[in-house]
Amino acid sequence: MHEMSLCEGILRVIEEEAEAQSYHRVKTVWLEVGALAGVEVEALRFGFDVVMKDSIAKGARLAIIEVPGQAWCMLCMKTVAIAQRFDPCPECGGFQLQVTGGEEMRIKELEVE
């Protein structure tokens, strides 16, 4: 999807935080990306380098923390692991699942100077 605009969102957050947390250069960005967030990590990396080029995060490293997909199965009445949104429940094969984790896309931490 729109990985480029997501990278612009990342840069906006980094620049906004720069003053509050008093840093002038970002060396590493730790980003949590859920398996169900709809983010193509390779496209994100590509966009990241391009968007950060003329910013305080120029040349920064993007470290991705993958968060597995999780859902509540209404038939089994418990939490199960899923790889994709439309996957069946690995235990009962049903599709009565409510996603409970793995949709996040958040900046966790920065390494700064």
Binding site: V13, K27, L31, M105, E109, E111, V112
Partner: peptide, 20 residues
């Protein structure tokens, strides 16, 4: 190693779509 470096670390915990 992403966990070993000289720089200072700051916690952010911001959702990227937060602005939207």
């Amino acid at each position: 190693d992403p966990h070993i470096s000289d720089g200072r670390k700051v916690r952010i915990e911001v959702d990227i779509l937060a602005k939207n």
